[in-house]
């Protein structure tokens, strides 16, 4: 369904060849194409608009049209701007404290439990940590079992309190338990929740206040569409999270949500999930993500 953006731009530039440099008038059609491509890639409508306005500012006056392949040059401008916006200095996950506490948050089914396992496994094997996984999802059927199965797979113990319906209390007890048992890392899995679910948002805010995590992560499905901005903003307003985890990138989604989220909350994307297995995680590469959004 998608036409490669550079082909698309090449076409719109053909019409303009020989007009010299980029002007307000001759670039309008091209910018429309770029905006469409971004929306096709699930970049939020408003974010795409703002983005193309900024690209226009960058492109105006540039001697693009006399270049051999003006479309490609324009794509490069767009690509670099995308990578710049999504990148910046990479911030490591904060695990200096003892115990370091990491809290997961996000919508239902985004991949929190799976990612909790992956992160524990990675920090255990690569950074020599002794993690404790904490099952604070007291709602989803078999959520505790799920975390326990993953814990077993990676050789990390899971703290759970069967029957306790107070997530805040479980989290607090877990931190106590970690301190007593020499766990220098505590990863707290939580239930999925909608940003508009007041009671559930209060719950996770209370968990955060009670255990004072060193790192709060917002886990988001990379297939998410236009709503990504609302959710990210709402979770950030409530939790002031430290970083974003983008899951299911082993699929073929263009992943425009990455740009949308970066734009509305300006928090770094720290990890990406690339599969269901416990070793399927990677750090975030803005250049690759820019390629992906542009379908390159």
């Amino acid at each position: 369904m998608f036409e490669n953006l550079s082909e698309r731009l090449e076409r719109s530039f053909k019409i303009l060849k020989g007009q010299g440099s980029i002007t307000e008038i001759n670039v309008a059609e091209t910018l429309k194409d770029i905006r469409k491509a971004l929306i096709d890639a699930d970049v939020n409508y408003k974010v795409a608009k703002t983005f193309t306005d900024e690209v226009k500012e960058k492109a105006l006056g540039q001697d693009v049209l006399t270049s051999l392949q003006p479309g490609q040059l324009m794509v490069k401008i767009v690509h670099d701007e995308l990578a710049r916006l999504m990148g910046g200095t990479t911030v490591d996950v904060n695990i200096k404290a003892n115990p370091a506490i990491i809290l997961m948050s996000g919508l239902q089914g985004s991949g929190k439990t799976t990612f909790s396992g992956k992160l524990a496994s990675m920090l255990k094997s690569k950074r020599g940590k002794n993690p404790l996984l904490v099952a604070c999802d007291i709602y989803r059927p078999a959520a505790i079992d799920q975390l326990k199965v993953l814990g077993e797979q990676i050789g990390v113990p899971v703290y759970a309190e069967i029957g306790n319906k107070d997530a805040v209390e479980i989290a607090k007890n877990a931190v106590k338990f970690a301190k007593q048992n020499n766990h220098d890392l505590v990863i707290v899995d939580t239930a999925g929740r909608l940003a508009i679910d007041e009671q559930m948002m209060k719950e996770i805010a209370a968990v955060k206040a009670a255990i004072q995590p060193h790192e709060t992560l917002f886990v988001v499905d990379s297939m998410t569409g236009q709503d990504a901005v609302n959710t990210a903003k709402e979770f950030n307003d409530r939790l002031d999270f430290d970083g974003v985890v983008l899951t299911k990138l082993d699929g073929d989604t263009r992943g425009g949500a990455a740009l949308s989220i970066r734009t509305v909350v300006t928090k770094p994307i720290k990890f990406v999930g690339t599969g269901e297995k416990m070793d399927a995680l990677d750090t975030f590469h803005p250049e690759r993500m820019a390629d992906r959004i542009l379908g390159m």
Binding site: D40, A41, D42, D221, M223, T224, G225, A228, T231
Partner: peptide, 11 residues
């Protein structure tokens, strides 16, 4: 289909 999914739902 997840109602929050974007254009990837097509594929």
């Amino acid at each position: 289909l997840d109602g929050s999914t974007g254009q990837n739902a097509f594929e």
